[in-house]
Simulated assay, not measured.
Amino acid sequence: MSALGQRDTEEDAQMATEAFEEIVEDFEFIDDWEDRYRYVIDQGKAMDPLDDALKVPATKVDGCASQVWLHPTIENGVLTFDGDSDAMIVRGLIAVLRKLFNGLSLAEVLAVDARAELERLGLNEHLSSQRSNGVRAMIERVRLVASEG
């Protein structure tokens, strides 16, 4: 494993969820990056807002330029999380991560090579360094919750 706890080989990596695969397929048909950003933002707009009562220090993700909250739930060994942000693009990135991880067992969450999966979307090259750091912080929070679950 790498320093970030990610799998080093493709054969060790868990395949992404079907919902995430749909995003990958949609991205294949969207050539323009502005349209891809709009798509990600639309994913965020489609999420239910996180209840204000859940926007507390315990759910706040440090390391993000904008305000970000992730509220995980583990039921029968399966992780789901809701989230919110005050930035539209970040809210969309939360939606993308939800589609990557939600519904997986804790072991499957830890097996996903999130960096490699997101690279399939080409997001790494098109996000600012601050946004990329924020995405890493969100992934680390999800992995931490799964490892402690």
Score class of each variant (00 low, 15 high):
29 F>R: 12
29 F>Q: 13
30 I>W: 09
31 D>G: 15
31 D>R: 12
34 E>L: 11
35 D>N: 13
35 D>H: 13
36 R>Y: 03
38 R>Q: 14
38 R>V: 11
40 V>K: 08
45 K>M: 14
47 M>D: 14
52 D>S: 14
53 A>Y: 10
55 K>S: 10
56 V>C: 11
58 A>I: 14
61 V>A: 12
62 D>L: 14
62 D>C: 06
62 D>W: 15
63 G>W: 12
63 G>E: 09
63 G>R: 10
64 C>P: 13
66 S>L: 11
69 W>Q: 10
69 W>P: 12
70 L>A: 09
71 H>W: 12
71 H>K: 12
71 H>I: 07
72 P>F: 12
73 T>S: 12
75 E>N: 12
75 E>W: 07
77 G>Q: 13
78 V>A: 05
78 V>Y: 10
79 L>V: 09
80 T>S: 15
80 T>A: 13
83 G>H: 07
83 G>T: 05
83 G>I: 06
84 D>G: 11
84 D>L: 05
85 S>T: 04
87 A>I: 04
88 M>G: 07
89 I>Y: 01
91 R>G: 04
93 L>H: 03
94 I>V: 11
98 R>I: 05
98 R>D: 11
100 L>M: 06
102 N>S: 02
103 G>S: 02
104 L>F: 03
104 L>A: 00
104 L>V: 03
106 L>Q: 01
106 L>P: 00
109 V>S: 04
110 L>C: 06
110 L>F: 04
113 D>V: 00
114 A>N: 01
116 A>T: 07
118 L>F: 01
118 L>H: 01
119 E>I: 06
119 E>K: 13
120 R>V: 00
120 R>K: 08
121 L>I: 04
123 L>K: 01
124 N>D: 12
126 H>A: 03
130 Q>W: 08
130 Q>Y: 07
138 M>Y: 07
139 I>A: 05
139 I>P: 01
140 E>Y: 08
140 E>V: 08
140 E>K: 14
141 R>K: 15
142 V>C: 08
143 R>C: 09
143 R>D: 07
144 L>M: 11
145 V>N: 06
146 A>H: 09
147 S>Y: 09
148 E>D: 11
149 G>T: 07
149 G>N: 09
